[in-house]
Design a protein around this nucleic acid. Structure first.
Lengths: 161, 161
DNA sequence: TAAATTAAGTTGACAACCTAATTATATCCG
DNA sequence: CGGATATAATTAGGTTGTCAACTTAATTTA
């Protein structure tokens, strides 16, 4: 085999290494990572001037299904980090917003994340960081495009017993 | 806020995008991704001249606990992709090896992966691919180093090989 | 207004892990 | 030798994150 094959294997290896990082997101004040992600998602909307966010909107932004969001929001509500309020215009909708406590947790989480990013940027250097960002987005694009193709293969069921 | 903060946010975003790629590893002939990974892991050993591999060895290489491996192997065995055989020297050990069918599935999976890698390399270009590999490994290193710090907070005692 | 669509929630499942405890050996050392 | 200790694998049970299938309620559209 030629050098291309070597690069392929190195790439596969590097990707596996990377993918298997739990990338540090466990824990944070006793809340589950997915909860934190919802919190931060809501906070981002809030910072842009939309304190209330719909479940469907969270779902879209986080790229998970709405049942998933419903569950997470329920749990966050139980912890007193968010509150729901019915939308008066469209009564199917539910507005989710952070409580003060939720905002605090979100703020802290975001800070922690950004500090980690900041550390990484320092570690890599500014230039390499920019490059890394671009490459990550490129690669994401590649996989996303290809994924559509792969679903066709899914139905090829040659199963046994 | 200076420009660093912008880079941090972009980086966070890019990482999230990337992380949330199921990176195409679902399914494959009806077998679970984790099963496939075990298969490929065993095959790699086989190609290096070690057809039998111990559970603990798989565990180490895949960086998952041995109960996890046991389960996966059990499932693979049920599908007729691997077989166990008792080690005669150390009777606590179990040697796992691919059946012919297992080898075929592993071969195909590896081929598919490498083709995907090959496509990606083409997509990025050789030079950028190399850069990407290096950056991934660097970043993995960064997170791993930092994770060690974070584990103190959690109490998740885990050692490396 | 009936039909279609959309928003959210409920239920039940599953993948991919983990920890703790258990069983069977193996090894080491007084 | 024989007990203490270490190691390999397994069993049992739990957690997280996610989804598909379905329901209910409300809204839009033909």
């Amino acid at each position: 085999m030629n050098s291309a094959s070597v690069t392929e294997k190195k790439l596969l290896h590097a990707l596996m290494q990377f993918k298997r990082l739990g990338w540090h997101e466990q824990f944070i004040r006793g809340y589950k990572p997915s909860e934190i992600r919802v919190l931060v998602c809501i906070k981002r909307g809030m910072d842009l001037g939309y304190p209330d966010i719909k479940v469907s909107e969270i779902s879209k932004r986080m790229q998970v299904t709405s049942p998933t969001v419903t569950q997470l929001v329920k749990s966050l509500e139980a912890h007193g980090l968010v509150e729901r309020n019915n939308d008066l215009v469209d009564r199917r909708s539910v507005g989710v917003r952070l409580t003060e406590k939720g905002e605090e947790v979100a703020r802290q989480a975001l800070e922690t994340f950004l500090a980690t990013m900041s550390g990484l940027i320092e570690y890599l250097g500014e230039e390499q960081s920019e490059q890394f960002i671009e490459l990550l987005l490129n690669v994401s694009r590649y996989f996303r495009e290809r994924e559509a193709d792969m679903l066709y293969f899914q139905g090829i069921g040659d199963d046994e017993a």
